[in-house]
Amino acid sequence: MKLRVAGVVILCAILMLNIIFTQYMVHQYYYENYVNTLIFGGLNILLFPVSIYVYKKTKDVKA
């Protein structure tokens, strides 16, 4: 698999994790589990620099 295709797959996986973490965060907030809400919010924030790194690595690859 080419690196560009692998990068797109990784970015899709990161997006899916972002959606899942946001969903869990809202669910935990609704049931007043604030510690879990902060954990999933922190995981969402940590995924952002990872996605930027993968995007920059994928963008620099020659087709």
Rank of each mutant, 00 (worst) to 15 (best):
G7K: 02
N33S: 06
A13L: 09
V8F: 06
Y30L: 15
L47E: 00
R4I: 10
L47F: 02
L38S: 14
V61C: 02
Y34F: 13
V5T: 11
K57D: 02
N36P: 01
K62S: 10
V5Q: 13
L11V: 04
L11Y: 03
A13Q: 07
V26F: 15
V61N: 01
Y55A: 09
Y34G: 01
F21M: 03
F40A: 00
V50Q: 01
N36E: 14
I19R: 07
L46G: 08
N44D: 09
N33K: 09
A6M: 09
E32N: 08
I45L: 13
Q23G: 13
L15W: 11
M25E: 04
L43G: 02
I19C: 07
Y34D: 02
K57M: 04
I10K: 10
I20R: 11
G41Q: 00
K62L: 06
V26Q: 06
V8I: 15
Y29A: 15
F48I: 15
G41P: 00
N44Y: 07
I20K: 04
A13D: 05
F40W: 03
V61W: 03
Y29F: 12
F40H: 03
N18P: 06
I52P: 00
P49C: 01
Y29Q: 11
I39S: 02
V50R: 00
V8N: 13
I14T: 05
A6D: 08
I45E: 07
T37K: 00
M16E: 11
